[in-house]
């Protein structure tokens, strides 16, 4: 498969729209666990990314540079805790796809593995802490394993996203151990973690995006 730099930018634009649609839902989840602004924070970040996609990045041909700019823009716009986490993810991903205008399946797999591992390293959270790592770590593990097995991106990514979804759903029954909501203790049980949810939505958006492309290509 081939994935071009314009498709990468289109994908980021589709995340912008998806986040706008999910903004209120993410805020509502956060209201039960924190200060109720997770959707707003994500929206501020992705709206800033939209600005840069429509300006500085309009003629950018290097996938790596696009991803670096996406990370840095998100960080500058939001700060917060998701800022450094996503920035680190996209910047680590950028290293893998540096100087490339077209990506193959191997590049995409390596990009998302570096992304997930980068977030994990920055956040220092573990599975079970009720954070975005509950989505990202199973996603990374399955992607790594299945891509090795299949040597085909979309099927491996599909299973990885499913694993991420399972992880996201598992946060509902967990007690928060990291971030602001960790102070909630038992009272955090019953609510799905907003950070795990938005992380899943971003991965799932990529799956849908690539799938629709490959259907068209066939």
């Amino acid at each position: 498969m081939e994935f071009t730099v314009s498709e990468l930018k289109e994908y980021f634009n589709s995340v912008v729209n998806m986040i706008e649609e999910q903004k209120d839902y993410l805020c509502e989840l956060d209201r039960k666990l924190g200060d109720g602004d997770h959707g707003v924070t994500m929206s501020i970040g992705w709206q800033a990314i939209k600005e840069s996609l429509n300006n500085e990045l309009l003629n950018e041909e290097d996938c790596g540079k696009v991803s670096i700019k996406v990370g840095k823009t998100f960080l500058s716009a939001v700060g917060s805790s998701v800022g450094p986490l996503y920035a680190t993810g996209f910047m680590r991903g950028a290293k893998v796809i540096k100087n490339k205008t077209v990506l193959n399946g191997e590049d995409l797999a390596q990009f998302w593995l570096a992304f997930g591992k980068g977030v994990k390293e920055r956040g220092q959270a573990d599975v079970g802490d009720k954070t975005m790592i509950d989505t990202l770590e199973p996603f990374v593990n399955v992607l790594e394993e299945k891509f090795n097995d299949y040597q085909e991106f979309l099927s491996a990514f599909s299973e990885a996203v499913d694993a991420g979804e399972e992880g996201m759903k598992s946060t509902k029954d967990l007690t928060s151990k990291k971030g602001r909501s960790s102070r909630l203790g038992e009272r955090s049980i019953g609510v799905q973690d907003p950070g795990a949810t938005s992380a899943y939505l971003i991965l799932n958006e990529f799956f849908n995006f690539v799938k629709s492309r490959s259907v068209q290509a066939n």
Partner: peptide, 11 residues
Amino acid sequence: IGNIFASPSPD
């Protein structure tokens, strides 16, 4: 200065 109830970014 950060956004409302959110840490400022490193810049």
